[in-house]
Simulated scan of single mutants.
Amino acid sequence: MSANLRERIKNLLEQTLKSCELNEYVIASEYLSPLGSAIREAERRVDIAVLKKEKNDLKPYLYIECKEQKTSGSAEDKLFRALEEAKRDRLLGVHSIVVFAGAGFRQSYERWAMVEGFVREEYADLWLKRFFCRD
């Protein structure tokens, strides 16, 4: 059985940080964001959070939401919500992306997502390396 998208992206992230010898970051799964939700007045769990060590504290540095859709369905609607959350995170000083995968997204939704800055899983490795490992 293959790992789910969150596990695959977390593994890529761990490999990227290790290969670039970046020790000032900590990775957390299902992280409870101190920023809350942009959509509703509720707590928000982020699929993957990269926290940066600053003095004696850990600060949110990058949030990664993972959306996988193997067949057509309601996940496309969740893309809109994910975008709003990512925009708000950025406004509040935390880098934020959405990684998506699967053949279940309609082509028009997939195009829209890429134009809005979403990252397809196939390009996540390159994206992470360019984001973290540039000199």
Rank of each mutant, 00 (worst) to 15 (best):
G73E: 05
R120A: 05
W127N: 06
A49Q: 05
D77C: 12
I64S: 02
L62V: 11
I48E: 01
H95L: 10
W112F: 10
G102E: 06
P60A: 04
Y109H: 14
E110L: 01
N56K: 13
R106T: 08
L92H: 00
L32R: 01
R106P: 03
R130E: 15
G93I: 02
E121I: 05
C66Y: 07
R106W: 01
R40A: 11
E54S: 13
E43Q: 15
G117V: 07
R81W: 07
E110C: 06
A113S: 07
Y123C: 10
K67G: 02
A124S: 08
R120L: 09
K53V: 15
K129H: 14
L92N: 13
V99S: 01
S96Q: 10
R44E: 04
S74A: 15
D47M: 03
E43Y: 13
V99I: 14
F105A: 02
K55S: 14
Y63I: 04
I64N: 01
I97K: 05
E43W: 13
E121S: 08
E85A: 04
L79K: 03
K67D: 02
Y123L: 11
P34E: 07
Y123P: 00
R134H: 11
K129D: 09
F118R: 01
K87W: 11
D89Y: 11
V98C: 06
E76Y: 09
A124I: 03
L92G: 01
G36S: 04
L91G: 00
R45S: 14
F100L: 07
F100W: 01
E68D: 14
D57F: 15
F105V: 03
G36E: 02
L35A: 08
V119H: 06
P34W: 06
S108G: 00
D89F: 12
E116C: 13
D47C: 07
M114G: 00
S108H: 00
K78P: 02
R81L: 10
E116V: 06
K59V: 13
G104C: 08
A113H: 00
L51V: 04
P60T: 03
K55D: 13
I39R: 14
N56W: 15
E116I: 08
S33R: 07
L58K: 12
F132M: 04
E110G: 07
K70W: 13
V98W: 04
F118L: 00
Y61V: 04
W112K: 06
N56S: 13
R81Q: 12
R44K: 10
F118N: 08
F132P: 04
E85T: 08
S96D: 05
R45M: 09
Y123A: 07
L128F: 08
E76C: 06
E121K: 07
E121R: 05
I97V: 11
E41Q: 12
C133E: 09
A86D: 09
E76W: 08
L58E: 06
E84S: 13
A75D: 14
W127A: 03
L79N: 03
A75N: 14
T71I: 14
V50F: 01
G73T: 09
L58R: 11
Y109A: 14
A124K: 05
C66A: 06
E122S: 14
L35Y: 07
K87H: 01
K67L: 05
Y63H: 11
S33I: 03
F80I: 10
K59N: 10
F105S: 01
G104P: 06
D77Q: 15
A101Q: 05
F132D: 02
K53Q: 15
R81V: 13
S74M: 14
